[in-house]
């Protein structure tokens, strides 16, 4: 039996005391255990930022990449080895800012990976600048008179672009988040998990109490996650409103994942296929095409 200890290594995180990343760290390990997956079976791809150091602090196959590019790297990895479970872990600047284009395309592509975004509504590792999800008027070092842009709406964006699994977690609700992660790890296609996460150093207005007062679970209100229109209504509640829906907002298993539809992958993961998939003689066809 796989246990949380299997995902533990000796490296201690460098996050601030009280950082929401600790809860996500624990939820990931518990989620993987709930999903019945071993470290060998998972590839965790991260970007750059506080929370993107996640795979340094775990015993897991890890690929810590560039700011904003984790989804692209993860997509290539998944297409080469679809037998592995791929999870991307990165922050809101990484996932919705620098990597915003990849987010849109991963969602509509339905590539089989989990995209967990640690959304603290601020840039942490660079010490306090406004992010794509920061609320209007948020005063930071790069927005001294307040942010002039309305915040990006990740869940609504994902649903509108055809994402097939859209969820929101809360870093303080470790078990609730672990449940979502466990479900997402076995989802058919792209799964977005937007995680509400306090940044105790650079976003003090959105502290633990601020989130607690607003967060609710959609399942407590009888939400049907297979109803796309209802899902979109829930998704549009935040940002914008005063209530933050969490849980699985939208889900369908009816849409084939991208990798399911790629002909060459019917023969198994690329990485397990021989370099030459046909006898040498047949490769002469490639030459003859040019006569």
């Amino acid at each position: 039996m796989v246990t949380v200890a299997d995902f533990t290594n000796e490296i201690r995180p460098t996050w601030c005391p009280g950082c929401g990343d600790y809860g996500i760290w624990n939820a990931l390990k518990r989620g993987f255990v709930k999903a019945g997956l071993t470290p060998q079976e998972i590839m965790m791809v991260t970007g750059i930022g506080c929370g993107s150091k996640m795979n340094d602090y775990m015993h897991i196959n890890g690929l810590n990449t560039l700011h904003g590019r984790a989804l692209a790297v993860a997509t290539g990895f998944k297409l080469a080895n679809p037998a592995m479970k791929v999870i991307v872990v990165h922050g809101d600047g990484d996932g919705y800012g620098e990597g915003g284009n990849h987010f849109l395309h991963a969602a509509r592509r339905n590539i089989g990976l989990v995209d967990l975004v640690e959304n603290n509504h601020v840039y942490g590792l660079t010490k306090g600048q406004y992010s794509p999800t920061s609320r209007l008027g948020f005063i930071t070092k790069t927005s001294p008179r307040g942010a002039l842009e309305r915040p990006l709406s990740p869940l609504a964006l994902a649903i509108s672009q055809g994402a097939t699994f859209v969820a929101r977690g809360f870093s303080l609700d470790v078990n609730g988040l672990a449940d979502i992660i466990a479900e997402a790890m076995h989802h058919r296609g792209y799964a977005l998990i937007d995680v509400m996460q306090p940044c105790v150093s650079f976003n003090r207005q959105m502290d633990y109490d601020w989130y607690r007062e607003r967060i609710y679970k959609v399942e407590d209100e009888g939400h049907d996650p297979t109803d796309r229109e209802a899902a979109l209504r829930r998704a549009l509640e935040f940002p914008g409103g005063e209530r933050i829906p969490t849980g699985i907002i939208y889900r369908t298993e009816e849409v084939p994942s991208y990798e399911e539809q790629v002909a060459s992958l019917l023969a198994g993961p690329l990485v397990n296929q021989p370099l030459w998939v046909r006898p040498l003689e047949e490769y002469r066809e490639l030459v003859r095409e040019n006569v």
Binding site: T65, A72, V73, G76, F77, L79, A80, N81, V271
Partner: peptide, 15 residues
């Protein structure tokens, strides 16, 4: 940007 990073992911996987 996506293209080269996808290649990096695939190459890292071993192809």
């Amino acid at each position: 940007i996506a293209a080269v990073n996808m290649c990096i992911g695939a190459a890292h996987a071993g192809v």
